[in-house]
Design a protein around this nucleic acid. Structure first.
Lengths: 342, 342
DNA sequence: CTGAAAGCGCTTACAG
DNA sequence: CTGAAAGCGCTTACAG
């Protein structure tokens, strides 16, 4: 293994001159020397030893992707295509920026701090923050910069990237209204717990309000999870005397479940119920009819999170900021145009 | 930041005694001393500095998950729920074994070697090996042990974990035969290139042969990729005068595409065509009717790959081995029982 | 623009 | 069972 020392010897310069070339310290090395050193580096296929670099500089260029295990295991977290997609982008973008991606699942805040000190991570990105208190604790105690995804805070107390969830709920519901629907239900996981879900729900209410429609509490389904939850919701709807003509759901997979529940009973879509999902994820194109869905720009989200993080690594003052990424509606075949019933 | 030195001072022992306690070197430290040192370690929340450890021991406890970029980007690689699922398991299992997971996309073999030398990775797992030559080159040149996933080799030249792809193709097709189908087609991506696909195709042929059925070349679709490919396949089938009553596909998503193609034309499943997919992945439960699919045991695959890798890290002699994980069939609603036409 | 020295926090032989 | 010394391969001030 070639070391800096050997490069230095062969080039007839000091070890630290080689180090300066490697680190591109501006104006520290004369062009001629740099050229010569570079040649020898290339010739020997010299590779930096990150352990040594980290030990002396206290920066490893490792970015930890934090996967909380409060409700689940890492494997089931990453089952979600959205998660895989996002992590793939992180790897891609961070690699270009000369950083390394370490996957870190964790249950307690201390575990994150331990990882941080163990590896001198330069920064961390928290995915799926389910608990505000823990998230705040993390942001406070962390040594290296932290960017939190998909979380709202009233106080601007950390770095975060989220999407226009409320607008998403709004444009989804508005679209149904414009297509003539007046009886529109809602399905999602526990509205109270997650600010993301809460916002999507608010957007739903916003749109109804604009049309002076009182939401029908019988058509609002809380605690609906995954495909099975959607199917169960459909079963409940089908038992009702008066049913909504359309549903907005906070996740595509829930809408797919409702679709399945209706189709299991020989009913047709979008004739028997119109659906709008959220995330524009893979399942939305798999089902028939294909699902109309609120689209979020995952690549942009990843890019934004990374550039915030890199900025924070450069600038110790930059520790509070919030970027909200836009959304739009991808119209497919799951919404029927009808004459308003009012 | 507390160091080994401070722990040693406070315990009144040498630095290397603390190191021995930390590394659990058997019989090197008296129980009394160990106890005392451990207490002080806990008290100070001492955390090992991996950079220092790696620098002196030449082992980082980092496992690189290798994601080849020959056809695609990391983000689209990880879009595949199977990939995310698997990586989640890797993280989970490796974490328990005190290893760290680094995600490494790469285009050329040299990049992998560079990562290896940069970080002194203890081992690597190669996902999606699409090119035999490059895989062999990797296995040869690599310094740290490498486990390759989903690849067959006639020669036992490296460590690999795969599944019974041929048997999978066989039981899928056999099931269709047992349900009375005789006109059974096949759809998958380029049969020639990937040994995985080749084996699944072979299994399909095996089952037909057992029933003395000649495969109909018009019903064998090569180069079918993703959902769209499945839809196109359906279009082609629907233009045929004589159509198969069933199809076996090498991926669930292709079967979903065929389903969609048929449903787009108002046809019904499984009445108009029976389908069996492969992987038992998320899309198979999302579609209606739900897809019968060959199941692979992803967790077992991950566990096997990791235990091979850890064994190889311990034992430099252990560099050639192959484990093949079983498969079974998950029967759902996409196969119709019919009276044989022969 | 260039360099000699110290040090980052561990582990590895080796000696006792 | 315990320890003093050397060294892993870099970077960080500092001096010139």
């Amino acid at each position: 293994m070639v070391t800096i020392k050997q490069i230095a010897q062969e080039a007839g310069v000091s070890v630290m001159t080689v180090s300066n070339v490697l680190n591109k310290v501006p104006g520290k090395v004369s062009p001629a020397t740099e050229m010569r050193v570079r040649e020898i580096i290339e010739k020997h296929h010299y590779v930096r030893n990150m352990a040594a670099r980290t030990l002396s500089s206290k920066s490893s260029h490792i970015i930890g992707i934090l996967l909380p295990l409060w409700y689940t295991s890492p494997s089931s977290l990453l089952l979600n295509p959205y998660a895989g997609h996002l992590i793939g982008y992180f790897e891609e973008i961070l690699r270009d920026a000369q950083y390394y991606v370490m996957l870190c699942s964790f249950s307690r805040v201390e575990e994150v701090l331990t990882i941080q000190r163990t590896w001198h991570t330069d920064g961390m990105i928290l995915m799926f923050p389910h608990d505000d208190e823990i998230t705040h604790e993390l942001a406070e105690k962390t040594q290296s910069p932290l960017v939190v995804l998909d979380r709202y805070f009233d106080d601007l107390s950390m770095l975060s990237v989220s999407i226009e969830d409320r607008k998403g709920g709004y444009i989804a519901t508005k679209h149904l209204l414009e297509e003539g629907h007046r009886d529109i239900g809602f399905a999602g996981p526990s509205i109270g717990t997650s600010s993301v879900i809460q916002n999507r729900y608010q957007g739903y209410l916003d749109a109804l309000k604009e049309y002076h429609i009182e939401p029908n509490p019988h058509w609002i389904f809380d605690k609906v999870m995954r495909l099975e939850g959607g199917v169960e919701t459909a079963e409940k709807l089908l038992k009702m005397r008066r049913r909504p003509t359309a549903m907005f759901t906070t996740e595509d997979i829930i809408a797919c479940g409702i679709m399945k529940g209706y189709q299991n009973h020989g009913l047709h879509l979008p004739e028997d119920i119109s659906l709008v999902g959220f995330d524009n994820s893979m399942p939305s194109t798999v089902v028939t009819p294909m699902l109309t869905s609120v689209n979020q720009f995952i690549r942009k989200k990843a890019e934004t999170a990374v550039s915030m993080l890199l900025k924070a690594i450069q600038d110790p003052e930059y520790r509070k900021d919030q970027v909200v990424i836009g959304v739009d509606l991808v119209k497919r075949d799951s919404v029927l145009h009808i004459a308003p019933t009012d």
